[in-house]
Design a protein around this nucleic acid. Sequence first.
RNA 1: GUCUUGUUAGCUCAGCUGGUAGAGCACGUCACUUUUAAUGAUGUGGCCGAUGGUUCGAAUCCAUCACAGGACACCA
Length: 504
Amino acid sequence: MAFENKFIQQRIEKAKLLQSEGINPYSNNSKRNTTVKKYINVNSDIAEKENKRDEHRIYTVSGRIKLLRIMGKASFFQLEDETGTLQIYIARDNLPEGFYNTVFKKLIEVGDIVEVTGYPFITGKGELSLHTSEFKLLTKAIAPLPEKFHGVTDKEIRYRKRYLDLIMNAEVRKTFQIRSKVISLTRRFFEDKGFLEVETPMMHPIAGGANAKPFVTHHNALGIDRYLRIAPELYLKRLIVGGFEAVFEINRNFRNEGMDATHNPEFTSIEFYWAYKTYKDLIEITKEYFKYLFEHLDLPIILPYGDIEVNFENFQEIPLIESLTTIGGVPADITNDKEKIVTYLKSKNITVKPNMNLGQLQGELFDEYVEEKLIDPTFITEYPVEISPLARRDDNNPEITERFELFIAGREIANAFSELNDPIDQYNRFKGQVDAKEAGDDEAHEMDEDFIEALSYGMAPTAGQGIGIDRLVMLLTNEHSIRDVLLFPAMKPLNSEDANEEEI
RNA sequence: GUCUUGUUAGCUCAGCUGGUAGAGCACGUCACUUUUAAUGAUGUGGCCGAUGGUUCGAAUCCAUCACAGGACACCA
């Protein structure tokens, strides 16, 4: 399999020659004492020095050779570490006798990881560089890097071999640094508010907390199937029953559904639950959260996303039914009538599943006519109870719930509600879901009697929210595919044999 | 899941209506001590995604399959 490629063979030969010269091609004897970024910062004054150099400052930097320009008895190369790229000047007469000609010129090449020691100077063309007095190979790369100018652009290679993508495309590293920062800031934001970070099971006996198809796995010792969680919601609420008053979890959820630009089988969300609060408090904390993110990420408050702009100072709030007419342009006289909605959708050539209830049809109208038009952050409130099986009913109108979803740039970013804590109401809503499941809705919720029992002991009035981290990061990094914000997005195996491989 | 467009050298890509496969980069050799995608000379490199079919002849036409991108459907 591996190492057949002639270029790889060639480079393996070079590694052997290095060994015969007494040079370890996989040395770990690194003496690095600064990064490229620090080197550039510390030496920003070199231009003012005599001869534009300072031979008394000696630094050792390490990194990968990205570009190599050999010119007879001297060479330049670009050395790249995580912090940046530095030009290295290396000349025959500054190195031990024979090293430059027999080792550097013949056995060192683009892709190798090396360490150089020397002093800062500025070249004739005005670039701060390092004048090498010692050169050491740390790691021989036996596989050649992709083309130096175009790099690797094939999306399949970039996703399957993310390491290559990261080597070749520095801006990709930036995206994942921002992702890391978003998660870190999110954690800090909620911790600062007094929330406790918890971990709840990833393997569930009942796949609850959302409407979705789960992955199934098997516990051998117990001889039972488990579901990879589709949401942590019901476990986090059990903790509120137990007396924790503010909890959050940032972790993966798994849904056995289609893959596309906004869906990966495993995705990251934060869910948080806050006792003695309502969804109104969640609207406030959500605004505060975004403000916090924008400040700490140093992002413009009017954020470009593709060819649109999102104004993060312009948070809107509008009830779902109202949005159908004012934003969606749906006639006002049909939005509360099942038959009229079905007729209307049919007249627009939109097919709906038979036996949909009013709430589901209103949801259809929203998805069809409103969602994509919500560019600036918009809290859609007053969701129908039929499509909100875990949310508390509005005290004044039992047909709607104390719930909102937050939409930004035409996409759902968060889902939140005052939690249903009436165990009998929750029991009946689960029953309704079970009936729907039996009627063929394979994404309907299952009965979770243990959760009902937990509620029976009393859960303080609580508000809870989930935010999709991947989509949030897409928004903040101006990426339009979820695969570009996941280091290792899900991909099909390359040959069908792998797909059918039996477990050991 | 459906439709659609791709898959040619390690990488980025040409290859017209079918006639024995091309460039740049990378790599080998030579020259070159301040280059910036270094430069100049020269050379090596391919089961044209897989399997069938049509044809005297297929990278090229047809069918099936695999993988990927995009759109739609479902979902977050």
